Simulated scan of single mutants.
Amino acid sequence: MRLVIGGAYQGKLYWLLQQTGYTSSDVAYTLADAQRKPILAALHLEIRKLLEEGREPMREVEALLQENPAVAVVCDEIGCGVVPVDAFERAWREETGRVCCMLAERAARVDRVFCGIATCLKREGTP
């Protein structure tokens, strides 16, 4: 499994497609579709949707990893900046952070993309 993180509109998905040779048709935007596609984009939006539905994002993402352990996950960094006053907005950011921590721990590789330039944060075999 691979995790790609970075700010909004920083070129994460484009960079990943260039690195892997996959095309836009290989990209899933829901957890259900990601069970059979190699890339899941916009994980942060899926987590928001799951929370709105009263579901447990951590459990759902773990189920995805059981079904598709080689998936590459793309997620916006949403926890930086001003802490929202709205409780749901805070919960969404916190849950997204927790899920990303779990993914980073399990990932063979973690990259952060900023202005279209990637920095490798973790490679298989490094803590």
Score class of each variant (00 low, 15 high):
81 G>S: 07
16 L>K: 04
127 P>Y: 03
26 D>A: 08
21 G>T: 12
122 K>F: 01
69 P>N: 10
55 R>D: 09
12 K>E: 14
96 T>A: 15
97 G>M: 00
87 A>F: 00
73 V>L: 01
105 E>D: 13
85 V>R: 12
39 I>E: 07
106 R>M: 02
83 V>W: 01
25 S>A: 15
60 E>H: 10
70 A>M: 10
2 R>W: 01
65 L>M: 08
100 C>L: 04
25 S>D: 15
40 L>V: 04
105 E>S: 13
15 W>G: 08
115 C>T: 11
112 R>T: 05
15 W>L: 02
17 L>W: 02
14 Y>P: 11
96 T>P: 06
25 S>N: 13
22 Y>H: 15
45 L>A: 08
97 G>V: 01
102 M>G: 04
48 R>K: 14
67 E>Y: 04
42 A>T: 04
28 A>M: 06
68 N>E: 12
101 C>S: 13
106 R>Y: 00
28 A>L: 04
80 C>W: 06
104 A>T: 05
49 K>D: 13
80 C>D: 12
43 L>Q: 02
90 R>A: 06
70 A>Y: 07
88 F>T: 05
62 E>F: 08
90 R>S: 08
120 C>D: 04
16 L>G: 04
64 L>K: 03
17 L>M: 07
127 P>C: 10
75 C>N: 12
92 W>H: 14
127 P>M: 06
29 Y>C: 01
9 Y>N: 15
3 L>R: 05
102 M>I: 00
12 K>D: 13
16 L>D: 05
99 V>S: 04
6 G>L: 06
100 C>I: 02
102 M>T: 01
35 Q>V: 12
104 A>H: 06
114 F>R: 10
49 K>S: 11
105 E>N: 13
30 T>I: 00
77 E>D: 14
104 A>F: 01
77 E>S: 12
83 V>G: 03
13 L>Q: 13
20 T>H: 01
94 E>W: 00
102 M>H: 07
19 Q>L: 05
31 L>S: 07
14 Y>F: 07
57 P>C: 03
118 A>N: 07
6 G>C: 09
93 R>A: 01
127 P>A: 11
58 M>P: 08
7 G>I: 00
105 E>Q: 14
10 Q>E: 13
104 A>Q: 06
111 D>P: 02
13 L>G: 09
119 T>Y: 07
14 Y>Q: 15
55 R>C: 05
121 L>H: 10
40 L>T: 03
80 C>T: 10
47 I>P: 10
8 A>P: 13
3 L>W: 03
126 T>I: 05
33 D>P: 12
12 K>S: 12
38 P>W: 00
46 E>H: 07
56 E>H: 02
23 T>R: 13
28 A>G: 11
110 V>N: 08
80 C>F: 06
34 A>T: 09
53 E>L: 06
95 E>R: 00
5 I>T: 02
6 G>H: 08
88 F>G: 07
35 Q>E: 15
10 Q>T: 11
4 V>W: 00
19 Q>W: 02
